[in-house]
Design a protein around this nucleic acid. Sequence first.
DNA 1: CAGGGTCTTTGCGCTGGCGCAAGCAGATTG
DNA 2: CAATCTGCTTGCGCCAGCGCAAAGACCCTG
Lengths: 231, 231
Amino acid sequence: MAAIDRSLVRALPMFEKLSDAELDRMLARATLRRVPIGEAVFEQGQKATQFFLLLHGRLKVTQVTSDGQQIIVRVVHPGDIFGFAKALMRDDYPGTPTAAAESLVLCWPTEVWGLFVEQNPHLAVNAMQTIGQRLQEAHTRIREMATEEVERRVAHAVLRLIDQAGRKEGEGIRIDFPISRQDIAEMTGTTLHTVSRILSAWEAKGLVEGGRQKLLVRDAAGLATLAEGES
Amino acid sequence: MAAIDRSLVRALPMFEKLSDAELDRMLARATLRRVPIGEAVFEQGQKATQFFLLLHGRLKVTQVTSDGQQIIVRVVHPGDIFGFAKALMRDDYPGTPTAAAESLVLCWPTEVWGLFVEQNPHLAVNAMQTIGQRLQEAHTRIREMATEEVERRVAHAVLRLIDQAGRKEGEGIRIDFPISRQDIAEMTGTTLHTVSRILSAWEAKGLVEGGRQKLLVRDAAGLATLAEGES
DNA sequence: CAGGGTCTTTGCGCTGGCGCAAGCAGATTG
DNA sequence: CAATCTGCTTGCGCCAGCGCAAAGACCCTG
């Protein structure tokens, strides 16, 4: 794929230790794919034939329960690798990553993983750290869901979002991709109704500013206070 | 440590590919530690100086929130490695593993991890799979907490326990270590009162048989039905 | 075997947040 | 500029599960 932007890849911590030659060898095996909004990179349950790196855009990873309920497991940000189920000894994908914004994805066949890791131990170590961090996040979320009430959970979720995907805008921080009340509900284990009510209350207090699939945080510190429970 | 039982270690999938010489070299760096009931192997927040392998017994890993609430993150079973925070780029331990039953633990200094991995790539791959599985479990648990009501969550937790630590006993399966209602509550994000009520109801239906820090599942299939929501 | 500690059970009242339902507001399309 | 579609807001009633409280039941110790 001639069109792959090397500088984008080069900037990632995951690849910074690779030589130019090694990088080229990796990119030679990759394909580039554009994912329009609403489209899935792959589907939950599908056989894992590739693993991926998000170059640009934003993906929501969802899981569906047997009875049709949906939750958002995590958000994939540019620079994250995802869908490397094979490395974890699964042969199907555990979730569905859907583009929340127009996205650009680098794809490798799963067989390449072994080669990569052999040729460059950094990659394995790095991947392990990545998974380790995700595990941490997951445990944090479990703890929140077990001990905190809805408003605090939503506060935490929003803070995490502006941390991972915030862009300064005027007198606040904007979440830099389209996100609905429904999405936030699926991230915090509640309903869109409750999220809507909470955001309305926050707006009245001047903490945030809402909008259709938009959210601007005006007072991050205030939100943080709320999240820590000193309401 | 002359007392280390090689056959115990040898049986673990984690080490089965190692040669006797390699195994000996690893064991030479290890120390053995007995952990009585109620004692912690290390404390949450402590600097990570060692990583561990549980040879025998059972550990509950807990996390405490800033406001003093406690949850059980997972249960460590014989053969599991734990406390390898350093490998995940943390320098403190994220939780506290406490002995639920008299336990036997193999301890290595963190510096050894790098050596192990270099000398034997299997170990790294294996460790990654382990973390991958834990991540999966964590996501499953998040999904359950977000979408299921308490009774089903408790059912799932109990099924997981008899799967990981079940021992046949007469006409049922016993959870093979002391576990209180409080523990189950901390695993499912509810209160010991609610757990007690649920177990009482199940006992009335003949699904389980309770007792002080004891639980015997009489009808696993029935529980599974309940867990899947076809109540 | 008496006494105290720990774990468990159960009743009761309260409430956070869910479910339903109706109406509203921005975007998008012909 | 209708018409429509999708996402957001809000009111209302209800109930699962929590918190409190008090009373067993089991276990260990002296």
